[in-house]
């Protein structure tokens, strides 16, 4: 990976867009402490940070444990972090309500649809109250209709939870629609080619995508990616 440097402010929604092989996932894994950075630092609130406490990770696959009911899947990080599980049960129930899965606490994952499973994994990423949510193409495996619905839902959940989100996608429209800022990476050599602020009002509706300004933003990203 080449040099990448950008700031993310508290409560911001930042997307990273780039073609496959540009190192988007690698970047997230470095932030989460899963891969060592060879050079450079992740500075968090002006200090080095402990990813296990400050990061919630949502993967492309929902990665739920089949043998656990939905509620226990959400509570998994609490168990791993050796926190008092009893104190978090109510929070898990509230989070499931936030992601629109009220009443599914005692279902098993294989009783849920793909979109619902991804909602559970979002609740799981929020349970230990991390400041930063990393999302690695979370809706990549969903069909187009479910995906649009999830984009709207994510915007609402993000606004309610006041988390900072770093969101990876290769869907340019998705990135422009969701983000306060879009960071563009290129592949071979993998490096950062630009960043762009998006200043539509919140909450955004799907209509925003038909506005001329939206088209301009998307066109600019295409240009940065040298797709013309």
């Amino acid at each position: 990976m080449g040099s990448v440097s950008f700031d993310v402010y508290p409560g911001e929604f930042v997307s990273i867009v780039g073609p496959s092989g540009c190192g988007k996932t690698t970047l997230l894994k470095i932030i989460a402490g899963l891969l060592p950075e060879s050079e450079g630092d992740i500075i968090f609130d002006n200090e080095m940070f402990d990813p296990s406490r400050e990061v919630g990770f949502v993967f492309q696959k929902a990665l739920l444990l089949n043998w656990r009911k939905v509620l226990d899947n959400v509570l998994l990080p609490i168990e791993i972090l050796k926190l008092d599980k009893k104190k978090y049960v109510q929070k898990a129930i509230d989070l499931l309500e936030l992601v629109g899965l009220k009443g599914f606490e005692n279902s098993y994952p294989n009783e849920l649809s793909g979109g619902m499973q991804q909602r559970v994994s979002l609740a799981r990423a929020l349970i230990h109250d991390p400041k930063l949510i990393l999302m690695d193409e979370p809706f990549g495996a969903l069909d187009a209709i479910t995906r649009e619905k999830m984009n709207l839902e994510l915007q609402r959940i993000w606004a309610d939870s006041k988390k900072t989100i770093l969101f990876i996608t290769h869907e340019i429209n998705e990135a422009v629609f969701l983000s306060d800022r879009v960071v563009v990476l290129s592949a071979r050599p993998s490096r950062m080619v630009g960043a762009m602020d998006i200043e539509f009002e919140r909450p955004r509706t799907l209509e925003v995508r038909t506005s001329p300004k939206f088209g301009e933003h998307a066109a600019e990203v295409y240009k940065m990616l040298e797709i013309t």
């Binding site: 894994k29 899963l34 990813p51 990061v55 990770f57 492309q60 990665l63 791993i80 972090l81």
Partner: peptide
């Protein structure tokens, strides 16, 4: 799934937890 292991590794899961859970 290797990603499933990543999911608990970034939370600093112990080897024992990875086996048990």
């Amino acid at each position: 799934d290797e990603d499933l292991l990543d999911l608990v590794r970034y939370l600093n899961a112990s080897k024992k937890d990875i086996f048990l859970k």
